Simulated assay, not measured.
Amino acid sequence: MSTPSQSFVTPSCRVGVRLHRRTNLPQQTARGLTGYGDSREVELRLVVCRLVPLIPHIRLAKTGLPVWMLGLGADRLRADMNRLLAMLFHQGVLDEQFLQLQQLQDESSPNFVSEVVNIYFHESEKLLKNLRELLMDREFSDYKKMGTHLNQFMGSSSSIGAKRIRNVCVAFRAASEHNNRAGCLRALEVLEHEYCYLKNKLHELFQIEQQRVLAAGVRYPMQNN
């Protein structure tokens, strides 16, 4: 018969399923309880093991985790955010301007970064639509207008630290200055791809941040719609 410590050495998926079946915890949350590796977290797993029969009676936070686990959850989510940001910087997707944007966020404006970035997304999608409409026009010849859209795109991308998108805009503008329609079409495809990648990754970052805030038990002021 295995001891509590031995049972938690098995793959987290199987243990998580067992924990899920024996408690009212969501299956994903139960799996998360078994995914730790360092000594401090192994201790926590042993505590959870002893408390398994009691977990249904422990008050749960909005995150689905017991209230007594909120601090640890917040730490892990912050680490997830840092890893994601490090990857985006390593890939050249973001630059230091994004960090400067984060420094402007505080308790009085807790959603500042996401609000600024969402405005950027809204404006960028209009610019992408305008660029595609221009290039799909068989009689298109207004490269100056295209250059204006690209300058706007470059400026807004620089302001949030979207480095790779800005670089694509530079190449796009060079093609438009040479009236290179084929080059512009290729650049537009790359720009749309880079935009989608950035949008998905930043949405992922903001979702982790929201989870971290809940896990930390922080209550932000309600926003007016």
Results as ranks from 00 to 15, higher is better:
160 I>V: 11
130 N>G: 14
104 L>W: 05
75 D>T: 12
136 M>S: 14
84 L>W: 05
15 V>Q: 04
46 L>K: 00
99 L>T: 05
139 E>P: 03
75 D>H: 10
94 L>C: 03
91 Q>P: 03
30 A>E: 01
173 R>L: 13
137 D>M: 05
85 L>N: 08
52 V>W: 00
17 V>Y: 13
179 N>Q: 15
100 Q>D: 09
60 L>R: 06
145 K>I: 07
88 L>M: 12
75 D>P: 07
187 A>G: 09
61 A>I: 04
134 L>H: 14
143 Y>T: 04
34 T>A: 12
214 L>W: 04
23 T>Q: 02
58 I>V: 08
6 Q>V: 09
85 L>V: 04
13 C>R: 14
45 R>D: 00
137 D>H: 07
213 V>F: 04
212 R>V: 02
218 V>K: 15
192 E>K: 08
120 Y>Q: 06
224 N>E: 15
161 G>R: 01
14 R>H: 14
210 Q>C: 05
131 L>C: 13
132 R>G: 08
141 S>I: 03
135 L>H: 03
4 P>F: 03
223 Q>E: 09
46 L>E: 07
122 H>S: 15
20 H>K: 07
73 G>S: 10
89 F>R: 00
38 D>C: 07
23 T>M: 03
214 L>T: 03
208 I>M: 01
210 Q>L: 07
133 E>S: 12
61 A>P: 03
176 S>C: 15
24 N>I: 11
107 E>D: 13
97 Q>H: 10
140 F>T: 05
142 D>Y: 04
91 Q>I: 08
31 R>S: 14
116 V>D: 06
26 P>W: 06
30 A>T: 00
88 L>I: 01
156 S>G: 12
151 N>K: 11
6 Q>G: 15
188 L>Y: 06
161 G>L: 02
34 T>C: 14
103 Q>K: 06
22 R>V: 07
8 F>T: 01
115 E>T: 15
190 V>H: 09
115 E>L: 15
106 D>I: 08
54 L>M: 11
167 N>T: 08
29 T>Y: 06
106 D>G: 06
61 A>W: 05
42 V>Y: 03
195 Y>A: 03
210 Q>P: 02
130 N>L: 14
83 R>N: 10
3 T>D: 11
35 G>V: 07
63 T>N: 01
212 R>E: 09
24 N>Q: 12
202 L>V: 00
216 A>M: 03
203 H>S: 11
22 R>N: 08
87 M>R: 09
215 A>P: 02
155 G>V: 08
23 T>F: 01
17 V>T: 14
47 V>S: 02
21 R>I: 12
135 L>A: 11
77 L>Y: 01
200 N>W: 05
205 L>R: 01
102 Q>I: 05
194 E>M: 10
85 L>Y: 04
94 L>G: 00
200 N>C: 09
33 L>I: 00
210 Q>K: 10
145 K>P: 04
187 A>I: 09
48 V>S: 03
188 L>G: 05
212 R>Q: 07
87 M>V: 07
122 H>V: 12
27 Q>H: 09
104 L>P: 04
124 S>M: 07
195 Y>W: 07
79 A>N: 10
67 V>E: 10
156 S>Q: 11
197 Y>N: 14
142 D>I: 06
209 E>A: 14
65 L>N: 12
37 G>C: 13
47 V>G: 03
209 E>R: 10
7 S>F: 08
146 M>C: 13
28 Q>M: 06
81 M>P: 00
199 K>G: 06
223 Q>V: 10
16 G>P: 01
145 K>G: 10
197 Y>F: 13
169 C>F: 09
